[in-house]
Amino acid sequence: MRIGLFATCLGDTLFPDAVKATAVLLTRLGHQVAFPPGQTCCGQMHVNTGYQREPVPLVRNFAEQFGDPSIDAVVLPSGSCAGSVRHQHGIVAERYGDAGLVDGVAKVRAKTYELSELLVDVLEVTDVGAYFPHRVTYHPTCHSLRMLRVGEKPLRLLRAVEGIDLVELPEADACCGFGGTFALKNAETSSAMLADKMRHVAETGAAVCTAGDSSCLMHIGGGLSRIASDTRTLHLAQILAATRTSPYALAEAAR
């Protein structure tokens, strides 16, 4: 399959390791990864902060970059960006775009997937041949859980990882408090939510807290770093990309 990879602006700029892991994983599974170089940002931050005119060119760019029919599926290693493409691009296009944009958005939306959806639903794999001999806890992230409804898919992928010690996160479905500009506009409430999430992560004794979204991980990881926790954050793709021949070196890892 020829899979279009949307790195997301955050992944491309600040968390490239998660995107690299996505590319490596899909290649390892025998697929061709295409990276349209004109891609930038999905516009989620704009829409969620109340701006719908400004992201029109971003929505258009996404539809153009990935509209190419030779791309069979588009993958986003981010639940919230995938949610934006699936639920918000249509709203923006209807309101401030034109008929062509509405059409383009609908076409590309139909083949856009978050990573765990692509693997389980489209590529029909749960055992991706990964090896990760560490204690891991999984935070489901709100947009993956409630907007995309990925359900158990990420957990099914993790359970199939060789050597993993997967422990359940207490109150896993509670929001970590990120919420994009919410973390700035309501920083204190966001911090109070983060404190509870970190307490639950600590209760698991996990070496790694994973999720399918670098933005939530940036939030949780930033908090864990501040309290000098032993637990670090890692994107789901990085765990799934690790193998026996090319294992993930946890100790020397840079955040």
Partner: peptide
Amino acid sequence: GWSATRDVSEPPKQTFREWF
């Protein structure tokens, strides 16, 4: 408000697109 309770890691040496 962010940095009151959260660190930010420094931007990496190479973006994903540069690596790719």
